[in-house]
Nucleic acid binder design. Structure first.
Lengths: 250, 250
DNA sequence: CCAATAGTGTCTTTTAGACAGTATCGG
DNA sequence: CCGATACTGTCTAAAAGACACTATTGG
């Protein structure tokens, strides 16, 4: 799939382009924001930054920022750059959530944002400040615990991201990206249970996973303990999630 | 869910906003494009416009255009405005597909677009030119028939839209929006078959649909013909699609 | 009565869910 | 041997799929 418009402009169009000045038009502000999820302390957590600049200075917000039209080749490049800046993680699972845009979501004017969500293993993270953030912190997403009020419409965005994550967990292999490279089936089941907020039956869970066929058994590698050792697995195909033909039962 | 940032700026922030000028920054071009699907002549079709302006003048493209920051309240408002301009349809099913953005998808510079897809009944459509379009036409999406080359990266966008539509048809009530208000179960099944490109079993299909519980039987209303008359149905809840717990079988 | 499409019923096969049983480690 | 967790098997109940049968109209 080519992202580029592969063609050379004709003579007439060249003239048009020379007369074209981007600053002659009222453009909306356009940014990229990230909802970064991980599992820590047996709960699903999201990364928030405390804004160091106006507007909403001092308030918590989703990490993100403007597109750098000189250096970013694409929206996803912007998202990955931001992710790297905050977490040090460079090869995560990222997927575009959706765009949000309206005249009053930003006091500076008409604003639109492309929101990505990322699933990363907390093992890989080295939190970093900087880039206009006074603080960076993980916040657990428990049904009882409240988050602080968020800047802009970020609370709404987070809601949508959570809905999307929870719904995709029901029929895809997404949660595997919240674990480190190697993991046991029991660990994977635990992640599913944490995100879904309910217990799953071991036998059916394993049947589903094996059918999904997205895991590779790591021959010889086992997780040891004072019990029967557990087989270690890794994701077979790096990025694209497997899709089950039925939803998770219980 | 509030889309607005409900708060008043503090004194310090007011000063910041006064000194803030949107034109001081290099912003990407931001537009909204539409993939409008309908069923005509027993096939899935998409609406394309022939561009009347540069760039890509004279080439076919998805309908769309820039956000009017003075009149459009939100991205969806822009999408609905464009849809109305081209088709006269004002209350369709619309959903955001995803954003596309890169430095080279538009010869005028860094460009990003929010793409929506709309499902409409061809009965409701009155095609209209204008708004920079030289022509507007429906194109059938058959696996064998080729579309003309499209402007920008619109061919890629259309591919993604088709994938999304086809995948959602497998487990949602979306196709119902491609029919007019009243329809029979056989007509609905036909739409599913057209979009999926395969035959479905009548009995299982009807079981699924009845379970989905998104249709209201229109008491007394029937479609007549030289055969047993068929019960008419309408969508129960206007917009949000029903989601099945399993994929369509065959 | 026939052609045509609507709508239902029944049988078979597959799958899910519950739950108990066996396996294998450290100590 | 015991505690703990990994992993597998079996039974039952429910669902899906195939396919045929009945229903109701116009002509």
């Amino acid at each position: 799939m080519s992202v580029t418009a592969k063609r050379k402009p004709g003579k007439e169009e060249q003239q048009f382009l020379q007369g074209y000045n981007i600053h002659d038009y009222d453009l909306p502000l356009t940014s990229v924001d990230l909802v970064i999820f991980t599992i820590r302390d047996m709960s699903l957590q999201v990364l928030l930054v405390k804004r160091g600049d106006h507007p909403f200075k001092g308030e918590w917000a989703l990490p993100g920022g403007f597109i750098d039209v000189r250096h970013d080749a694409s929206l996803e490049a912007t998202a990955l750059r931001k992710l790297k800046e905050k977490t040090g993680v460079s090869a995560p699972y990222v997927e575009q959530l959706q765009g949000f845009g309206s005249k009053d979501r930003d006091p500076r004017g008409w604003s639109s944002t492309f929101v990505y969500f990322a699933l990363i293993s907390s093992d890989d993270v080295i939190l970093q400040h900087g880039g206009g953030a006074d603080d960076v912190k993980w916040f657990p997403l428990m049904h009882n615990k409240k988050l602080p009020a968020l800047a802009f419409d970020h609370a709404d965005i987070l809601d949508v991201a959570l809905l999307r994550l929870r719904s995709k967990v029901e029929y895809t292999s997404l949660p595997a990206h919240l674990l480190s490279k190697e993991f046991t089936l029991s660990e994977l089941q635990q992640v599913y249970e944490i995100v879904l907020g309910r217990q799953l039956d071991k036998s059916s869970f394993r049947k589903r996973i094996k059918e999904g066929d997205f895991l590779a058994e790591l021959a010889g590698r086992q997780r040891l303990g004072s019990n029967r050792p557990a087989q270690l697995y890794a994701l077979r195909d790096g990025k694209s999630p497997a899709i089950f033909s039925r939803l998770m039962g219980n």
